[in-house]
Design a protein around this nucleic acid. Sequence first.
DNA 1: CATCACGTTGTCTCA
DNA 2: TTGAGACAACGTGAT
Length: 665
Amino acid sequence: MGKPRVIYWFRTDLRLHDSPALKAALDLKPECLYPIWTWDPHYVYRARVGPNRWQFLLDCQNDLSASITKLNKKSKLHVIREAPQTLFPKLWKAWKISHLVFEKDTDSYARSRDEEVIALAKKAGVEVIVKTGRTLFDPDELVKQNRGKPTMSMNQVQHAGETLGEPARPIDAPQSLPDPGDTKLDFDQEQPASDPDVNAVQRDQDEKSYASGLAGPKGDFSVPTLEEIGIKNATSPHRGGETRALKGLDEIIKDEDYTATFAKPNTAPTDFEPQSTTLLSPHLHFGSLSCRLFYWRAQDVISKYGSKATQPPTSLTGQLLFRDMYFGAQAALGHTFAQTVGNPNCRFVPWHLPSRVQDSSDRDSAPVTTTNAASGTQERDYQIDSPEAEEYFRRWKHGITGFPWIDALMRQLRHDGWIHHLGRHAVACFLTRGGCYVSWERGASVFEEWLIDHEVACNIGNWQWLSCTAFYAQFYRCYSPVAFPRKWDKEGRFVRKWVPEMADVPEKYVYEPWKAPIQDLKKAGVMLKKGAELGEEEGGSKVYPKPMFDFNDRRQICIDGLKQAYDVGLYGNDPKVLDGSWRKLFPDDAEGPTKGKKGGIGGMIEDDEEATGEEEFDDVQRKGEGEEGSAKKKSENQGGASPKPGRKRKENHGSMEQFVKRSKK
DNA sequence: CATCACGTTGTCTCA
DNA sequence: TTGAGACAACGTGAT
C-alpha cells in the first residue's frame, strides 16, 4: 500500500487554526494533500444568501487560500466547480485518492449530502475520516447526554457538557503542508440545473461560475468573484477571512476587563463604531474562527481574573454555550427543527402568513420542500391570509414601519448584514408576538437572507425563543419600540444614523415622531405621511411613514393571542395542526387565520370546501423576497399564480391517517 | 400533589 | 434621578 493521497474537503471550517479534521488529515502523513472546496450548486442556487454573506464567504476562501500558499508555495485552496456528489467519484479516480477528510456538519442538507458522499466513497474504496469541530461539543453527544432530548435550556447544556468534560483545547495551525499531487482534470463537468434559483433576486447579472469549467476561467482553481456568480455588490463593511478573525479575537482578548466582565444583557444594541459586542459571529459561522479557540482564550482570561468575572449564561463563554444549545436542539429534531409543522418542540400559534406545507406524506418522508429543505430553513411559499399582515411584513422587512427604532435596525441589517443581538430581539418580537403577529418563519427567512452570521441552528432557535414558541415562554414581556431603545440611547444617535429622516428631530420625539408638534418636524425637515415608502421626498422635505399601527393596541392583541394559543396548547406535530382541525379550538375572531372549522396543514387550505380537495391550489402565493430587485428571473414553480401542471396536492386522506398514526409513536 | 424560585436581556408608575 | 413593585402570569425543576 502506497502512502495516503488525501483530499481535505473544506466546508464550514475555513481556517488553519484549531481544525481537528485538518490535523487528522496531516496525521496520515500523506504523500499529497489536496485542499479543496466543492463549488456546490446547492449553495449557489438553493440556499438563500444575500450579497454580504457571499462576500464574506469569498473573503474567507481567498484568505484561506493565501494562508495555504504561505505554508506551501505549490498549494492553495482548490475550488472545483461541481456538486460534490457528482464530482467526487470522478475526482478520486483522476487523482488516485485514498482518503477523504472533512469536518462534521449538522445542518440538514449537509447531513444528507455527507451521507451520500460517504456511501460513494465506500463504493470507490476511499477511506473517509470525519472529525467534529464546529461546536464546543459534538451536538449528537450533547443530545445523548441529555437523554436523547433536544437541549432546550442553558441548564441542560451545562449539565450535559459536564459529563462530556471540558471542550477540547485548541490545536495549533500546521507549520507546513504537503504538496498537492497532479491536478489534471481528465473528466467532464456536470452542469448544474439552475432552476429554481432562489438567489435570482440577489443577482444583477447571469450566474456564470460554472460556465468556465471545473477549474474556473484561468484553469487555476480560483475562488469565484461576486461578478462570476452574478451577485450584486455587497454593502457590508464587515469582511471575512481567518486573518481578520484572529486579529479581531486578539483585540477582544487583549482587553481583559472586557473579556472577563462581558455581560450580554448589559451591552448596548445602539452602540456603533464600535459596536458593543465582538462581531466574531460570522467567523464562527464560516469557521474562519474556531469556537474552541475563542472559548479557551476567553476562559483563560476569566480564570485569572478573579471573582468579578461574569459567568455563563451572560458571559462571553456563555454565548458560545448558547450556540451549542441550539446545535443540540437542531441535532435532536432534524429538519423539523426549522419549522413549526411537524415540530414536537414548537408551539403552534395561528400566526398570520403561515408557511405552506406539502401534505403529510411528503412532509414525513422526504425533505419538507424539494427546493429548500436543504438550506434548513424556509423560503417556501406562505399563505397570505391577511393583506394587512402582508403589508406589515413588507414594511418590517424594508424598514418603513414608522417606528424609527425598528426601521433603523432593519436598515442596518440589510446594509451591514449584522445587528446587535438585542436589536434582533427587538425586531423579532415586533414582527411576531409584539406587534405584527406574523409567523416567525417569515422573519427567520429574512434573517437567513441578510445576516452575514446566519447559522441555521441559532437563527431558528432565536426566532422560536423570541416568538415564545420554544425555549422561552414569558410572552407578556414585550419589547417596546420606544421605551427599549430610549434606555440605551436617549439622544437617538443610532436611529439618526440609520434613519436620516430622524436626523434633526428633537430628542424627545426621536423614537416617536408622530407625537412631535408639526413645527418641530418642519424644522427638522421631515413630514410624516401615512403609507410613505423608502426615500420619499415632498416639497424639499424628507417623508417618513406614520406608524403602521398603534403599538399598544397591537401589543394587547398579541398578548391575548399568545395566551389563547398557550391555552389551546398545541405543538407543531399535533394531528390537529396537520389536518386543520386546530381551527375548531380557536374562536373565529381570534387573531390569525382562525375562521371556520376546517383547514389544511398549517393553514394551507383556507376553507371547509377546500379541505376535502383534489383541486390544484391556485390561490395567491408569493415568495418572501419576490417584491424587490430588478433581476427578477422568477423561477416558475416557486411563485406567482401559475402553478405548473401537476402541482396538485396529492390525495391526502389515506396518507394523512398514516401520518397521524406515525406521529403518535 | 403543592409550592416556590428561577429563567441571558420588559414596561410602567410612583415614591 | 433611581429603584422598587405592579402588571398578569409562562414552563421547569427542586423540594
